[in-house]
């Protein structure tokens, strides 16, 4: 903290100039933060948003970005300011800076503030997690089976209202909470629907699961997102989000067509 005046006499003019440069830098940093935040909204970060979960997660992401921008700008601004103001000028080759060893208040401050900020952010993320995974009163269970290198889907009697159905196609109703129960026949895969913003590994020996409530009609990619061998890059499928009525007709038609039997050849549910 000791500033050695004799060693490093601040010229009176320099002090004023540096106050002005500080203000200037501060304003520039504020602008940078502003631009950053605007950009963070302008950039097209995500694929289409097709579920309740996606809405929550996207909001979380934006909050995280907005919290991060000032931190990053702070670090970069201080560096640039130091480079601008304190870089060695000709004739200063042998000069040293003031021997400042530390400042307890400052150190406590920059320990406590990030800690509080971080705990706040994790707390918020847990709230989102809780929302995203909450068990609803009513839900549809669909089995998902991964094997090198294909997906199959199992609709139990509780969904079909009849015989269990095995299919290579994945249809789910819009607006209903769906619980995917994931099984693997060989190695680990991961069942990921980017449009829903949810994934989980499909692990041999245990059943994992995730929930989603689709909110947008359409067809979205299903991606295997864990290295599972040669065909990993091509282990893709689709999920069709359809109105409930259409979902039920689809199930009926599948049952009627006996698809249950034919697709089951490749699976055992």
């Amino acid at each position: 903290m000791e500033r050695n005046a004799a060693d490093n006499p601040p010229a009176p003019g320099a002090a004023r100039a540096s106050r002005r440069s500080l203000t200037l830098t501060f304003v520039a940093a504020l602008i940078a933060v502003g631009v950053g935040i605007v950009l963070s909204y302008a950039i097209h970060w995500f694929p289409v948003k097709a579920s309740l979960q996606a809405r929550n997660t996207d909001t979380l992401y934006h909050v995280l970005v907005i919290a991060s921008i000032p931190i990053f700008v702070l670090v970069v601004t201080v560096i640039l300011y130091c480079v601008w103001q304190f870089r060695m000028r000709p004739g200063e080759e042998l000069k040293d800076g003031p021997p400042i060893h530390g400042n307890t208040q400052l150190e406590v401050f920059w320990t406590a503030l990030p800690a509080v900020l971080l705990l706040g952010l994790v707390g918020y993320s847990f709230a989102v997690l809780h929302d995203n995974e909450a068990k609803p009163a009513r839900e549809i269970r669909i089995g998902v089976t991964g094997q090198q290198f294909a997906w199959t889907y199992q609709y139990p009697p509780s969904v079909t209202g009849g015989a269990p159905l095995n299919s290579y196609q994945l249809y789910i109703p819009k607006g209903e909470s769906v619980k995917f129960e994931l099984h693997s026949k060989d190695v680990i895969h991961a069942f990921w629907v980017p449009a829903f913003r949810v994934q989980e590994d499909v692990v041999p020996g245990i059943t994992t699961n995730w929930r989603v409530t689709a909110t947008r009609l359409g067809t979205y990619p299903v991606v295997c997102n864990l290295l599972c061998g040669l065909g990993h890059s091509l282990m893709r499928s689709r999920v069709h989000v359809v109105p409930l009525a259409q979902f039920q007709t689809w199930v009926k038609s599948q049952l009627a067509a006996g698809a249950g039997g034919s697709a089951a050849a490749g699976t055992t549910g």
Binding site: V75, V78, C82, F86, L118, L119
Partner: peptide
């Protein structure tokens, strides 16, 4: 998740201390 977030605190201490080390120094770039 909590410990992972908290580990940014000691790392942050380092970053900020480095920045403070730069402050009013004579920077040889």
């Amino acid at each position: 998740a909590i410990t992972t977030a908290i580990i940014a605190v000691p790392t942050g201490i380092k970053i900020f201390s480095w920045l403070a080390t730069l402050w009013r120094g004579v920077l040889h770039l």
